[in-house]
């Protein structure tokens, strides 16, 4: 299975995410006591791209997120975040061999996330995240939620509170700017009408969008979304797609997302990494991953050889991936299914 990490066709060419990675995860291992949640995982997230991390339940996707955003300290491995173009290999190796957490480089800066506490990752390395179970400040208004996200610039502007207490004009200006930014994001996620309502009052889909807006208010270079489409109806998940495209296009933010909704994943991702039992089983563009037999096997929990023999399994594959992809992967489409499709 491990041999199928790259299909032979991909082996020759170098992918964009390897040339200009915003984040590289190398040999990441996370153990909880005796349980190995992630085992020697390496992948890159391309700058300005949307990268999806998929896999069956319990594959370790959220653990990867928690390692990247500093909520877990990885047992082993290096997680390097780069501001500025290119691989910056020189600086990465310099920081790794020093005891520094990060270092400016000619192109920008390099951050070793596994050495940084969670709040510094958001503050300095500019990695923002959302949560699988939405974590908004429910008792605060929508506007306040977005202002809390701008805590660090506002703290500096308020002279670490002293200037703010005295009411210095510099702080007022900064506060107005932060409200303007909040208004901008509220307009983008179409929540401007509800700016003064408590966040807990919003319907589920709006809360998901608000959480993304809140993460974007920290001006991240990398936005990590943990199942952003969970619980959304088809129209809402279509809007989510557009929002993510907008964020990438207008703000140049790279996006790393965990998602179960294959419709969303296949439509918007440039790059897909597939995990199973903490191990990477596939890595490539959507077309390559879709037809990778090991991915299909992992999703259905069967060995490759079993696939062709079991028509009921085959029909599930067809349903999940579409007929074309299934045919490409060498799965025989059951006749019953074909008839059904004609209707």
């Amino acid at each position: 299975m491990a041999a199928a990490v790259q299909t032979p066709a991909d082996a020759g060419e170098t992918k964009s995410w390897d040339l200009d990675p915003v984040l590289t995860v190398e040999h990441l291992t996370m153990r909880f006591g005796g349980l190995v949640a992630i085992n020697d995982l390496s992948f890159n997230v391309g700058r300005g791209e949307i990268t999806a991390l998929i896999g069956p339940n319990g594959a370790g996707k959220t653990t990867v997120f928690n390692c990247v955003t500093g909520f877990y300290k990885p047992t082993e491995g290096r997680i390097a975040m780069r501001h500025g173009l290119g691989q910056q290999a020189q600086t990465v190796s310099e920081v790794t061999h020093s005891s520094l957490k990060w270092k400016p480089s000619p192109e920008g800066a390099v951050f070793l996330l596994e050495r940084m506490p969670d709040f510094e990752i958001s503050h300095h390395a500019k990695v923002a995240r959302t949560f699988q179970n939405i974590r908004l400040f429910g008792g605060m208004t929508v506007l306040e939620n977005l202002l809390v996200a701008q805590h660090n610039p506002l703290m500096r502007a308020s002279g670490f509170t002293l200037g703010g207490i005295l009411g210095l004009p510099g702080f007022r200006k900064a506060e107005q700017a932060s409200i303007d930014k909040a208004v901008y994001w509220l307009e983008q996620v179409r929540l401007i009408e509800r700016a003064d309502d408590p966040a807990a009052d919003l319907p589920y889909g709006d809360q998901r969008r608000l959480e993304i807006a809140r993460a974007m208010c920290t001006e991240p270079h990398l936005l990590c979304l943990d199942e952003p489409a969970a619980g959304l109806n088809p129209r809402e998940s279509h809007e989510l797609n557009e929002l993510l495209q907008f964020i990438r296009r207008e703000h140049g933010t790279s996006v790393l997302l965990i998602e179960h909704d294959m419709g969303v994943v296949m439509e918007i991702s440039d790059h897909i990494v597939v995990l199973d039992y903490g191990v990477k089983i596939s890595d490539g563009d959507p077309a390559a991953v879709k037809t990778d037999p090991s991915v299909i096997a992992a999703y259905l929990g069967v060995e490759d050889e079993d696939l062709a023999e079991k028509p009921e399994v085959a029909s599930i594959v067809v349903e999940a991936l579409g007929e074309e992809a299934a045919e490409e992967a060498g799965i025989e489409i059951p006749p019953a299914r074909k008839n059904g499709g004609d209707k």
Partner: peptide, 24 residues
């Protein structure tokens, strides 16, 4: 002020605070 808002945010959800770069 931002510090007071951060206090209230802390009361609401500490993990979300840390994900937004607040030194709790």
């Amino acid at each position: 002020l931002p510090i007071g808002r951060a206090w209230e945010a802390l009361r609401e959800d500490e993990i979300a605070c840390r994900s937004l770069g607040i030194n709790t």
